[in-house]
Nucleic acid binder design. Structure first.
Lengths: 210, 210
DNA sequence: TAGATTGTTAATCGATTAACAATC
DNA sequence: TAGATTGTTAATCGATTAACAATC
């Protein structure tokens, strides 16, 4: 069995989203070709991805929608509520705190942490606590995943603190590339870099066509 | 000359960030090896990337920091203010509207658009306007890049409207995969998918180590 | 059976890396 | 000159795709 890489897992999420939409259209089974169209990949890619996870269909009959969905749910952790913490309740952090998409897809922010005392509250549905409480909170709740949304200069330090409390995966919005280690997966999202990318290709398109 | 792909441009942004930090440390020249360390890639990769863009160093002398920075600035559009529009001033949209990182790096949101009349304002530094005004506004200002931060069901329609006004590149936060076309580059960021990815690898790490 | 789709192998494609001649 | 680093080629690596036997 091949070890799946990041893009493979990303595709699995896309397949899952497509399947949910197809299920809403009363599809009972789907073919690799359907999913390929929906996710903008080739049918061979779909079958290859499934085979990596031992997801089997029926020759001639495609894949059972319900069966497929429950297997993908299992792989992507949708079979249980995923509790995470959020560090940095500023501009971006606040938006993530109230992002309805997380709730909808079984991801729950258990608590937020921030250095600014004016942000503290324990009465809201999601408590905002001081960083000093982070270590014990994460350990007590056995949380393994966190979001970093602090300024760049604080990001590395926050990461170390999280790791010391047992965090094993981080989604980082601070505009600095945090390095992955053997004991902690990191996914860096740099909003400026994402836009710079688009800016480059738009410029490149302009000069290509005059 | 090879056509650079997305990951190549992403690396260029990373190199640029590293160079800015090194310049702050009074570096006058850097070697491919320095940048490789700073950006977590190999030195060969750095030189390869530069050669794609005709960025030349000095054998034995490395690259001049100022020269390198200005060349990267040019490629990434940092030689001028980039004006963009934002569609959807909800939870995520509002955070992007006030994200200080854009301003800092020469990206300016010229206006926001939303269907909700209670959000309209023309007195703020960034006006919020109704979608009906979008087409003419984008044309008048000759804006080529936009951010989509609307609910999933509205995203495709917003994209069409943007394209009809001449938008050539889009950063999409709606949780639906918008398809790229020859005349418009798309960069999809799905916050749930990003977390699902981390959730998978954390789970995979757990079961691998027990 | 005839027709269609999976599962998988082999071929292809592209990106990364190693290595080294050029040269400062 | 001796030593170090670039720029580039060739080798490697890995991911995607085409193709087709298996089979429902």
């Amino acid at each position: 069995m091949n070890i799946p890489n990041r893009t493979c897992i990303m595709r699995l999420s896309r397949y899952r989203n497509a399947i949910i939409r197809l299920k809403a259209l009363n599809f009972v089974r789907v073919f690799s070709d359907n999913l390929a169209d929906a996710a903008s990949v080739t049918a061979a890619q779909v079958r290859k991805d499934f085979s990596v996870f031992g997801i089997a269909g029926h020759r001639r009959g495609g894949y059972q929608v319900d069966d497929l969905l429950s297997q993908l749910n299992k792989i992507l952790g949708k079979d249980q509520i995923q509790e995470i913490v959020l560090v940095g309740v500023g501009n971006i952090g606040k938006a993530l705190l109230h992002y309805p998409g997380f709730e909808k897809s079984g991801i729950r922010i258990a608590a937020g942490f921030d250095v600014d005392p004016t942000k503290y509250s324990t009465h809201e549905s999601i408590p905002i606590l001081p960083p000093e409480k982070m270590h014990d909170y994460i350990l007590a709740k056995n949380i393994k995943i966190g979001i970093i949304a602090v300024p760049d200069y604080a990001a590395q330090q926050v990461l170390e603190l999280m790791k010391s409390a047992g965090i094993k995966g981080v989604l980082n919005f601070a505009p600095i590339c945090l390095r992955e280690s053997a004991d902690c997966v990191i996914n860096n999202i740099n909003l400026v870099t994402e836009l710079e990318n688009i800016i480059y290709f738009v410029k490149a398109g302009e000069s290509a066509q005059g």
